[in-house]
């Protein structure tokens, strides 16, 4: 077995196991920590696919920044297994159904895709920072800038919401 293959199966097992643990652990803080493990495993997958830039950005943004904010909120809410509200049966049924159909669509889409397999062998080079930068700033420059405006508006929205709250408290 090639070293890439061994790593791929190891990381896949790790990602799947951690993802299961996210769902099954009773403590929400443990769930978040397992979710970080999932992101780390996916970072490893990106490195196998020779997409180092995506790998490290995945680590900085998702595992580093976003999960820290999740942890922040959960640590302060002091959630524990006893205080967790029980969802209704229909809700659970609907969740399983929608999750299952998403999985079906993903499998169907990826099953016959050759590009996916070749990128798994570490042959692609689109994820390297030079190639990705060129593509982002030439072919996809308009969507790229529009998405950055989206981020900006989200940020401004958050600030506006935060400000309103404090001014009503003062008045």
């Amino acid at each position: 077995m090639h070293i890439n293959e061994i790593l791929f199966w190891f990381l896949t097992a790790l990602a799947l196991f951690s993802a299961m643990m996210v769902v099954f652990s009773k403590n929400p803080v443990h769930s978040v920590l397992w979710l970080i493990m999932v992101f780390m495993a996916i970072t490893g997958h990106y490195i196998i696919m020779n997409a180092q830039f995506l790998a490290i950005v995945n680590m900085i943004v998702y595992a580093g920044a976003i999960m820290v904010l999740f942890l922040f909120v959960i640590m302060f809410m002091n959630l524990n297994a006893e205080s967790e509200p029980q969802k209704s049966k229909w809700m659970k049924f609907a969740a399983v159904l929608s999750g299952g159909s998403l999985m079906l669509i993903l499998i169907a889409a990826l099953k016959d895709n050759d590009g996916f397999i070749s990128s798994m062998r570490g042959e692609g080079s689109i994820g390297l920072i030079k190639n990705l930068g060129k593509v982002l700033f030439t072919d996809y420059v308009v969507p790229f800038e529009i998405s950055s405006i989206l981020f900006l508006s989200a940020m401004v929205g958050a600030v506006v919401l935060g400000k309103k709250e404090s001014s009503t408290i003062v008045s």
Partner: peptide
Amino acid sequence: LYVFGVVSM
């Protein structure tokens, strides 16, 4: 970027 990744961890 690796340095930044580790720092954020």
